[in-house]
Simulated scan of single mutants.
Amino acid sequence: MNTGKTLFAQIMDFLPWTTFTRLVNRYGGDRYAKSLTCAEQFRIMAFAQLTYRESLRDIEVCLSAQSAKLYHMGFRQEIKRSTLADANELRDWRIHAEFAQRLIAQARKLYVGEALDFELENTAYALDSTTIDLCLSVFPWAPFRTTKAAVKMHTLLDLRGNIPTFIHISDGKLHDVNVLDVLVPEAGAIYVMDRGYLDFKRLHTFHQASAFFVTRAKSNIDARRVYSAPSDRGIGIMCDQTITLNGYYSSRDYPAHLRRIRFKDPETGKALVFLTNNFVLPATTICALYKARWQVELFFKWIKQHLRIKRFFGTSENAVKSQIWIAVSVYVLVAIIKKRLNLDASLRTLLQILSVTLFEKMPLQQAFTTNALVENQANSSSQLILFDF
């Protein structure tokens, strides 16, 4: 890396800017832009995500304090919060959404060989959603409760590398199961989801597309046993059955056989009943797949803690969606950098380092080495003590 560049500029070099330019031209993003281009808007919002900025004023003040380095970070002039607010309000959010999808495609190629905690050749996804609470008077376009607004972030997470492959942003009222209508099943892939997605008509669509699903059964399921496979109670597999649905509507919506596995956790004693259309994988693998679904919950927790998707810089639907998609792009970009530079540190550690070193001029890989961290600690220890108690 060129040591004359700031770390922020080196990070931005990993982005496919030619693709970004094509998307901007497709949606006319720079058609009426006089001072702030879409590329600069993306850089500013990415900077805000990487450095944990809290507001437009916070962004403006932070960048103004480093005005001498703005040109080397890709900014042609000082940033004004009103100009950035207008850009977030008016620039089409689909530019950032499609750009994030391009980054996701790159990341998935890098993480395709990642190993799971169990043996599995199929691609495995975890599907879930998270709700981001908002103020109804400020965000009236996102109704949720009588006195509350919210947006839902429906996410399909690739369990190899924990890369989000599909994201759908809706208002808080949209039920999780409706996302199955938007999702295009991938033949041979396994979709792991909780009971909120149990809709036999929609699941049969997955079955017809040669895709597999793993979900939990509801307690009132009406079904009869067709066949019982041998089970090992010593490892918690209480039964492994082939069943058919009895209910009039459910049997019409899903006429094929299902596989029902009852699992009792040896540690907690809790019993879980899984439903799947995969009759080939061992019962223990089906149970392990559902346990791996927790990765999507950790993903939601991670991005809410380390990225700015709970406090928004704008109040319009376009501004909110733009900020969420740019946050996803930053997450995937850091994952790409981690893989391409063969870094052992976690994404959390990488973000922490970047948040305090973006203005530094050093090779990017050096910033993440142990020697660099030790040197930074030594430099800080040699500083004068302001208060000595």
Rank of each mutant, 00 (worst) to 15 (best):
N2M: 04
T3S: 15
K5Y: 08
L7Y: 09
L7S: 14
L7E: 10
F14A: 06
T18A: 01
F20P: 00
R22Q: 00
G29T: 05
D30T: 10
L36W: 12
T37N: 12
C38T: 15
Q41N: 14
M45H: 01
M45I: 13
A46V: 07
Q49I: 00
L50K: 05
T51C: 06
S55K: 06
L56F: 07
E60P: 03
C62E: 13
K69G: 05
K69D: 12
K80G: 06
S82I: 15
A85T: 10
A87M: 06
A87K: 01
D92Y: 15
R94T: 04
A97Y: 00
A100F: 15
L103M: 10
A107N: 06
R108D: 15
R108H: 15
K109D: 08
E121Y: 09
N122Y: 02
N122Q: 15
Y125T: 08
Y125L: 07
L136P: 01
F139E: 12
W141H: 07
P143Q: 02
T146V: 11
T146M: 09
T146E: 11
K148A: 11
V151H: 09
K152V: 01
M153I: 15
M153W: 03
T155D: 15
D158A: 09
G161D: 14
N162G: 07
I163D: 10
I163R: 14
D171H: 11
K173I: 00
H175F: 12
V179D: 14
V179G: 07
D181H: 03
E186G: 13
I190Q: 13
V192W: 00
M193V: 09
D194M: 11
R195W: 08
G196M: 10
L198W: 11
L198F: 05
D199T: 10
F200Q: 03
R202V: 05
L203G: 01
F206A: 11
Q208G: 02
F212E: 03
T215S: 12
R216G: 05
K218Q: 02
S219W: 12
A223R: 09
P230D: 14
D232V: 05
G234D: 04
I235W: 03
G236R: 00
I237V: 09
I237L: 03
M238P: 00
S251H: 04
S251Q: 06
Y254S: 04
L258N: 02
R259M: 08
R260V: 05
R260E: 07
K264V: 13
P266V: 06
T276I: 08
T276E: 12
N277I: 12
N277F: 10
F279A: 04
F279N: 02
F279M: 04
V280H: 10
A283M: 08
C287F: 03
C287A: 14
A288N: 08
A288K: 12
L289T: 04
R293E: 13
E297S: 06
L298R: 08
K310A: 06
R311L: 07
S316W: 02
Q323R: 01
W325A: 02
I326N: 05
A327S: 12
V330L: 11
V332S: 05
I336S: 00
I337V: 13
N342F: 08
D344A: 07
A345L: 14
S346A: 03
T349R: 05
Q352W: 14
L354H: 09
F359R: 06
E360I: 09
Q366H: 09
A367S: 13
A367C: 12
T369M: 05
L373F: 13
L373W: 13
Q377G: 06
A378Y: 12
I385K: 15
F387C: 15
D388E: 09
